[in-house]
Design a protein around this nucleic acid. Structure first.
Length: 508
RNA sequence: GGCCCAUUCGUCUAACGGUUAGGACGCCAGAUUUUCAUUCUGGAAAUAGGAGUUCGAUUCUCCUAUGGGCUACCA
C-alpha cells in the first residue's frame, strides 16, 4: 500500500462537536496504526459562514484530546498552506481545465433567478434539479455563444462553474465500510464547483483538488458525505485521477440520545450533557458546556467516542489510546448510526478516574481545593482521596465528596436531621463527645472499637447513634466509614463539630 | 417527493450459514455495610415483518415497514 495520509478537514463555522472529534479520532488512529500522516486542513471556502475563533477552537480541542497533528494549519508541512482560503489561486485553474475538457460549464443564473425557478417548479408539483434536462435552456455556456459568454465575463457579470454531470450512467463506487454503492448519474445534479462572486471554489472542487495535491490516501469522513461521493468519483475521473484517488470510508452518524435525528448542540443544552469537547462561547454570548470543563479526562472521552461506531471485535471496552491504535480497523466500523449515551460517557470517566494512581487523584483534588481557598497538607489530601475515590465520577466530584474533611459543616441536610436528630440521639451524641474526649490514640481502629463498645454496652440502636454522629461530622449522610473520617479530621476538629451541632440544632 | 445508507436486548455492540444469541451501560433483586458508594451474586431484556435460497438463516436474496442522511453559488 502507498503511504497512508489522512486528513481531518473541518470547516470553521463553529465549534467542533463530538461527532467531529470522533471523525478526527478515527483518522488519527488509522494514521498512527499505518505509520502514516494525520493532516489538519481547514476548509473555509464559505466566506459567509466563517466564524472567528472556530479554527483555534478546533486546534485546541484536538490538543486537549491528545490527537497530534503531523501536517496542517497549526504546524505547517510540505503542502502548506493548509487553509483553503489561502490556496484560492490554485482552484480556478482546475475549474477552468474542466470547462476546457467539456466536463464543466459557465452558468450565469443569479441566485434569485434560480430561486424563482425552484418556486415555480414546486408549485407545479415538480422538484427542480439543475441537471441535463435543463442546462441547455438556462443562461449557460452550453446555450450561449462563446462570444456572448466572453462578453458577459468581461463585463463583470457574476458566474459560476458547474459540473456537467453525465446522463444515465451508472457510477460504481467502493466504500471501505459500506462496500459497493451504485448510483445512476441521472439522479444527480450539476453542482457548483467555483463561484466568481468570492473567487472561491465550493467544497467539492476544493476537496478533490486538495486531496489530490496533498496525496491523501484515505478519506474517512461522516456519512453525511455519502450522497456526494458519486460527484467526487466523477470529479476524479474528469481530472484523470481515478487511478490515484483515495479510498473512502463513510462513518455512521452520531444520533441524539433520545428522539429523532443526528446529534445537535440543542440536545446537549436540553438533556444536560456537553456536545463540545471544550467550552464554547459564540458571538451571541451563550456559552455551551465542554467535556473538559465538566471534569472529564480526555482519555475517557476519547475511549467513549471510539466505541461509538467501532469495536475491537471482542468484549474489551477500556482501551488506552495506544491500544486503540493497534486494534483499530476500518472493517470493524459499524454501518448504522449510533445513539449517543451520556450515561455511558459518565461510566467511562468513572472507570478512568478510579484507575488513576492515588498521587494523581490527590493532585486533582488539591487543585480543586485551591479553587475554594483551601490548602491542606499533602498527606491529608492523599488520605482523603483514598477514601473518596470509589465515589467520584467526574473530577469536580472529588471536591464535593472531600470538602467536609477540610471544613466543618455549617449546615445540616434537612432530611437527615429529621431522621436522626430526635429522641435520645442528641443526648447520646453529647455522651459520646465526653467519651471521645478521653481517647488520646485517635485512630480509626481504636475509635471503631470504642464506638462499637460504647453503643453495645448501652444496648442502643447502632444506626441511630452512628448516623447522628455522622450528621455532626459530615453534615449529611454518606461518605466513608466514620472512624476513618474521625481519624483524618483529628480529635480537636471532631469534638468541635460534635459540639457545634448541639448549638446549631438546639431549637429543634 | 426523489436519491442513497441502515435495521440484534431501552442504548452501544458480539456472534466462518449450525451458539442455551455473548458482553457492556442502564434497570431490578439479593449479599456485605452505622450511612452513601464500592464490591460480589443473581435477574428481566433483542435478531422489525413477510417471502424465498438452504438439511439448517441473526448471517445470503427480494419485498414491506421503520430509522437516518442528502437534496444550496453550506460544509
Amino acid at each position: 500500500m502507498k503511504n497512508v495520509r489522512v486528513r481531518f478537514a473541518p470547516s470553521p463555522t463553529g465549534a467542533l462537536h463530538i461527532g467531529g472529534v470522533r471523525t478526527a479520532l478515527y483518522n488519527y488512529l488509522f494514521a498512527r496504526q499505518m505509520g502514516g500522516k494525520f493532516i489538519l486542513r481547514i476548509e473555509d471556502t464559505d466566506s459567509q459562514r466563517f466564524v472567528p475563533g472556530a479554527e483555534d477552537y478546533i486546534i485546541k480541542s484536538l490538543e486537549w484530546c491528545g490527537i497530534t497533528i503531523d501536517e496542517g494549519v497549526s504546524v505547517g508541512g510540505p503542502h502548506a498552506p493548509y487553509r483553503q482560503s489561502e490556496r484560492r489561486e490554485i482552484y480556478l485553474k482546475y475549474a477552468l481545465q474542466l470547462v476546457t475538457d467539456g466536463w464543466a460549464y459557465y452558468a450565469f443564473d443569479t441566485p434569485e433567478e434560480l430561486d424563482a425557478i425552484r418556486k415555480e417548479q414546486e408549485t407545479a408539483g415538480k422538484t427542480f434539479s439543475y441537471n441535463y434536462t435543463i442546462r441547455q435552456n438556462l443562461s449557460t455556456s452550453l446555450k450561449l455563444s462563446p462570444e456572448e459568454v466572453q462578453t458577459r465575463i468581461d463585463r463583470g457579470d457574476q458566474w459560476v462553474i458547474r459540473f456537467k454531470m453525465p446522463e444515465n450512467t451508472i457510477i460504481k463506487m467502493n466504500d471501505l465500510v459500506r462496500g459497493e454503492v451504485n448510483v445512476n448519474s441521472s439522479t444527480l445534479d450539476d453542482k457548483v464547483l467555483y463561484k466568481s462572486a468570492d473567487a472561491l471554489p465550493t467544497y467539492h472542487l476544493a476537496n478533490i483538488v486538495d486531496d489530490k495535491l496533498m496525496e491523501i490516501s484515505h478519506v474517512i469522513r461522516g456519512e453525511e458525505w455519502l450522497p456526494s461521493l458519486p460527484l467526487h468519483f466523477m470529479l476524479y475521473k474528469a481530472f484523470g485521477w481515478s487511478e490515484v484517488q483515495p479510498q473512502f470510508a463513510h462513518l455512521p452518524l452520531l444520533l441524539k440520545p433520545e428522539g429523532n435525528g443526528k446529534l445537535s448542540k440543542r440536545d446537549g443544552d436540553k438533556l444536560g450533557f456537553p456536545v463540545f469537547p471544550l467550552e464554547w462561547t459564540p458571538q451571541d454570548g451563550t456559552t455551551s458546556r465542554g467535556y473538559k470543563e465538566d471534569g472529564y479526562l480526555p482519555q475517557a472521552f476519547l475511549n467513549m467516542l471510539a466505541l461509538l461506531g467501532w469495536n475491537p471485535g471482542d468484549d474489551k471496552e477500556i482501551m488506552s489510546i495506544d491500544e486503540m491504535i493497534s486494534l483499530f480497523s476500518i472493517d470493524k466500523v459499524s454501518k448504522a448510526g449510533a445513539r449517543f449515551s451520556p450515561q455511558k460517557a459518565l461510566w467511562f470517566n468513572e472507570q478512568y478516574l478510579r484507575a488513576l494512581p492515588n498521587e494523581e487523584l490527590a493532585q486533582l483534588l488539591d487543585s480543586q481545593l485551591k479553587t475554594i481557598q483551601i490548602t491542606a497538607p499533602k498527606e491529608k489530601v492523599a488520605a482523603v482521596v483514598e477514601l473518596v475515590r470509589a465515589r467520584a465520577v467526574l473530577i469536580p466530584d472529588l471536591l464535593t465528596l472531600a470538602k467536609f474533611y477540610f471544613v466543618a459543616p455549617t449546615q445540616y441536610d434537612e432530611k437527615v436531621v429529621q431522621k436522626f436528630w430526635k429522641n435520645e440521639n442528641p443526648t447520646h451524641l453529647k455522651n459520646i463527645t465526653l467519651m471521645l474526649t478521653q481517647i488520646d490514640d485517635f485512630t480509626a481502629l481504636v475509635l471503631d472499637k470504642a464506638l462499637h463498645d460504647w453503643i453495645q454496652e448501652r444496648e442502643l440502636p447502632m444506626g441511630q447513634v452512628m448516623n447522628t454522629l455522622r450528621l455532626s461530622i459530615v453534615g449529611a449522610s454518606g461518605g466513608a466509614s466514620l472512624p476513618e473520617i474521625l481519624e483524618i479530621i483529628g480529635k480537636e476538629d471532631a469534638l468541635q463539630r460534635m459540639n457545634n451541632i448541639q448549638t446549631v440544632l438546639k431549637t429543634i
